[in-house]
Amino acid sequence: MEFEPEIVIFCCQYCTEAADTAGASHLGYPANIKLMELPCSGKISIIYLLKAFEEGADGVCVIGCEEGACHFLRGNLRAKKVVEYTQKILEEIGINKERLKMFNLSSLESQKFVQISKEITEKIRELGPIF
């Protein structure tokens, strides 16, 4: 049987609209994806990301608004740095940092949301189970 990865996506409230639109427009995204809504991607923290892996995620990603278009000015830039720092921790503990990624999106791009979720699922499937 093909490995079905568990993916957690931390998504800012505006980007979540893209996911909702995707659902409403019957643009299906993979069922293995757990969507966690944040008020802003800048709310993400190292511990959320690590906990997601601890709780069984094989891959984690953070989606924020396009750079320069954050509704809270720099939240998405902060998220980017938190993701980079957490990637360093993953490397330190021997986990492929490709399992954690940051994407940027606008609330209108439901197609892109579907594409990202497929892309990350494919990538993690390729990498196999985390443990």
């Binding site: 511990i47 690590l50 892996f53 601890e54 921790i89 330190e92 503990i93 986990i95 985390i130």
Partner: peptide, 17 residues
Amino acid sequence: EKEVDILASSLNLLFKS
């Protein structure tokens, strides 16, 4: 407190692997 959580979580992942 945050760093204690982060380290514990990192070590959990490390030993799990």
